[in-house]
Design a protein around this nucleic acid. Sequence first.
DNA 1: TCTATTGCTACTGTTTGTGTAGCGGAATTC
DNA 2: GAATTCCGCTACACAAACAGTAGCAATAGA
Lengths: 109, 109
Amino acid sequence: MPTKKPGQTARGTQSGRPIMVLFDILGQRWTLRILWELRGGRLTFRQLRERCDDVSPTSLNKRLKSLRELALIDLEKSGFGYTQLGIELGEKLADMNQWSERWAKSLDR
Amino acid sequence: MPTKKPGQTARGTQSGRPIMVLFDILGQRWTLRILWELRGGRLTFRQLRERCDDVSPTSLNKRLKSLRELALIDLEKSGFGYTQLGIELGEKLADMNQWSERWAKSLDR
DNA sequence: TCTATTGCTACTGTTTGTGTAGCGGAATTC
DNA sequence: GAATTCCGCTACACAAACAGTAGCAATAGA
């Protein structure tokens, strides 16, 4: 299945609305994790695999391919890393991290 | 597979860090969409199914069960809806929606 | 009692993800 | 210049997740 871009129909919707396309890719396993692990700077394919609990190269490659097509990450000599757009999305994940800590505390009580 | 809560190991990690648990549940298909569709208020099981492009009841039920265990949504007489914690997460999704619109415009160029 | 709606489940087939092994290419080392 | 080491990536077979249809038990209203 080719990666769907905003404006095109994505898994589970016909609208092509950007948020639906985003939910499509983020709703696939490892996507969120990959974006998260890149927050500290560029990583090679193999470094990224290690950080992601040795995700299978098959899955990793599929996700990286999609994320590159969607212009969220790119590949340079020093490895995979955020594009300008990806940085913004990474900030959203950082927000979620903060929220998740409060969430965990609430669940404890 | 039982739903993992923060502090417990989740799919793809041993740490139990809240963000990893969150990525686990959000990285399953339909989770993000379900949370998104509840933004306008409570919906019954069947209403939610319709909004989610007729997702199979099997999948919907699994997600709802997980989200309830994680205290992100609850079920009242008027249907499924956000908990207090869920509202906060819903706001993050609203942020993402705004971002995704800018993202789509950037991709056009 | 009959009807309609609720949340939910069983069952089966398709799609998605996993795990191992290893490829070809480029850079580095001896 | 041959061998080694790293790079991104792929093939293939297996396991887990998801989908689609049908229909259940429980509740409420007429």
